[in-house]
Simulated assay, not measured.
Amino acid sequence: MKTYKYITLFALFTASLLFVQCSDDDDNVIMQETCNDGVLNGDETEIDCGGTTCEPCGVVLDFSGTYKQEDQMGRPGINTVFGTEGFKDAFNVTVPSEMQVAFQNKFEARLLALNPGYTSNALGLNAEVFTTVLSNDVLWLAQSGITTYFNGTEVLTGRALSDDVIDISLLLIFGGADGTENPGLTSDGVPTNDVAFATSFPYLAGPF
């Protein structure tokens, strides 16, 4: 009985190999991905191996070379607003674990220059605590619950695509303890995208 099982499995395995093998004949393989020298050509009806030996289809990524970090954007706009006092480039290449020590006092000075009357914000954070949070430029993500940049209750539990992070940042910088101070400075006046978000992954809106 075991012998028959092994023979049957071997036959199925052999048949599956024959079914998926690729060919240089453009007429006998259908509903497969087409490639040409490793690059997809958009025609998803045939396989063209381009020679006598079939190569895997797809783009081969080359990660050789020397790389260096050029930008830092855990939270959108943070370095744009606070990194304007001659340390923007240094901030971009600093690892998050070293950011608070290196930049918190610079962020605080910048915050008070932008809003000399700052005492607290809608999160109840004074200037020192607020800039300690901001200077560690990482996007926090809660593993459960609501994902939001700030919805009035939850704070920095992630970022939903529809979150207006610039308005939220402006509100926390200029809005005061109850969010009503300096109303002309607490919004950029852009409430939504020009293009609706997609309903399937990756959900981002297409170019407009």
Rank of each mutant, 00 (worst) to 15 (best):
N36D: 07
D37K: 14
G38I: 00
V39P: 01
L40V: 14
N41V: 09
G42N: 06
T45K: 10
E46A: 12
E46D: 11
I47M: 01
I47C: 08
D48Q: 05
D48K: 14
D48F: 07
C49V: 10
G50W: 05
G51Q: 08
G51K: 00
T52G: 14
T52F: 15
T53P: 00
T53V: 15
C54T: 07
E55D: 11
P56W: 00
P56N: 02
P56A: 07
C57K: 09
V59R: 15
V59P: 12
V60Q: 12
V60L: 09
L61C: 08
L61Y: 03
F63V: 06
S64Y: 06
G65Q: 00
G65A: 09
T66S: 15
K68A: 10
K68Q: 08
Q69A: 11
Q69L: 09
E70C: 11
D71Y: 12
Q72C: 05
M73R: 15
M73K: 13
R75I: 14
R75S: 05
R75T: 06
R75H: 02
P76L: 13
G77V: 04
I78G: 10
I78N: 01
N79P: 00
V81M: 12
V81C: 13
V81D: 12
F82H: 01
F82L: 12
T84W: 12
E85N: 08
E85L: 14
D89Y: 12
N92S: 10
N92G: 13
T94M: 13
P96G: 04
P96T: 04
E98I: 05
E98V: 05
M99H: 01
V101R: 13
F103S: 02
N105K: 09
N105S: 09
F107L: 09
E108G: 04
A109H: 01
A109R: 11
R110C: 09
R110V: 11
L111Q: 02
L111Y: 01
A113Q: 04
A113P: 00
P116V: 05
P116H: 11
T119W: 05
S120L: 13
N121I: 02
L123T: 02
L123A: 04
G124N: 01
N126G: 02
E128P: 00
E128Q: 15
V129T: 07
T131R: 03
S135F: 01
N136T: 14
D137H: 07
V138C: 04
V138I: 15
V138T: 09
V138G: 11
L139C: 15
W140K: 13
L141I: 08
L141H: 08
A142T: 12
A142V: 00
A142Y: 14
A142L: 11
Q143M: 10
S144D: 10
G145M: 10
G145T: 08
I146D: 03
I146M: 06
I146H: 08
I146L: 15
T147F: 03
T148S: 04
T148L: 00
